[in-house]
Amino acid sequence: MKQNTFYLMLGIVGLIEVGLFWLSVVLHNPLIITAGFIMGVGLLYVARMTITDIREDERAVLISQKAGSRTLEVFWVLFFAVSLGSAVIGFGTPLGLPRPRELPRDFPRDEPHLGYFGIFQMIMLCCIAFLYIGFRVYYARKYGEWDTDEE
């Protein structure tokens, strides 16, 4: 598979995921987007392995590894800290999160709380993606990615 074909596939899978998310919200079924996302990413991982027109040598691998490990170092601390905070809220009352006094009939129980936390997690993940890009740029510069020579 060519690299451009992979990017095209990435875009299509992204659009399908957006559609599945919408469907999931409309049908009140989180399993649709959860399963769809795992399958979509799995498909992209498999497709990435079939790319033929990309030359990745040991220096490129080292840059990815260093950036990835640095991002993980920061990410797990942030994620754990936020999760600890959420656990405190969860254990703040004897039976977990307090429920609103009166709920409409079709109002999903406690789901909004989890949903908001999910949105917060996604924002954190987006920030982590930017952090990874930052580390990649740093290590790419360190290992001479954009250096020029007299040749």
Binding site: R59, G144, D147, D149
Partner: peptide
């Protein structure tokens, strides 16, 4: 079977192979 940037980085001492 490496990239030109890798050879350049090694020559400049920025990367140890």
């Amino acid at each position: 079977k490496v990239t030109r940037q890798t050879i350049l980085a090694i020559e400049k001492g920025k990367y140890d192979p």
